[in-house]
Amino acid sequence: MANGSIDLDEIAARATHIEVACSRCERRGRYRLSRLVARLGEYFPITDFGSETADCPRQNATATERCDVYFPNLVKIMTGIDQITKPRASPDDDDHY
Rank of each mutant, 00 (worst) to 15 (best):
M1H: 10
A2L: 10
A2H: 09
G4M: 04
G4A: 03
S5R: 07
I6F: 11
D7L: 10
L8V: 06
L8H: 01
D9L: 04
D9G: 00
E10C: 08
I11Q: 00
A13F: 03
A13R: 14
A13T: 04
R14F: 05
R14C: 05
A15H: 03
A15C: 09
A15L: 11
T16V: 15
T16R: 13
H17E: 05
I18S: 01
E19A: 12
V20S: 02
V20A: 08
S23R: 15
G29Q: 09
R30H: 10
R32I: 08
R32N: 07
S34D: 07
S34L: 04
R35G: 07
R35C: 04
V37C: 01
V37G: 01
A38N: 09
L40A: 04
L40K: 01
G41Q: 10
Y43F: 10
Y43T: 13
I46G: 00
T47I: 11
T47C: 13
D48G: 07
F49E: 06
G50P: 11
G50N: 03
S51V: 10
T53D: 01
A54T: 14
A54G: 15
A54N: 14
D55G: 08
Q59A: 14
N60Q: 15
A61M: 07
T64Y: 14
T64R: 14
E65F: 12
E65M: 15
C67Q: 03
C67N: 05
D68A: 11
D68E: 11
V69K: 00
Y70F: 15
Y70G: 02
Y70D: 04
F71P: 02
F71I: 03
P72M: 06
L74S: 02
L74V: 10
I77W: 01
G80N: 06
G80T: 08
I81A: 13
D82M: 07
D82Y: 05
D82S: 14
Q83R: 11
I84V: 13
T85W: 05
T85F: 10
T85E: 11
R88M: 10
R88W: 09
R88S: 10
A89Y: 13
A89V: 08
S90W: 05
D93S: 11
D93W: 15
D94P: 00
D94S: 09
D94H: 07
D95H: 14
H96K: 09
Y97N: 12
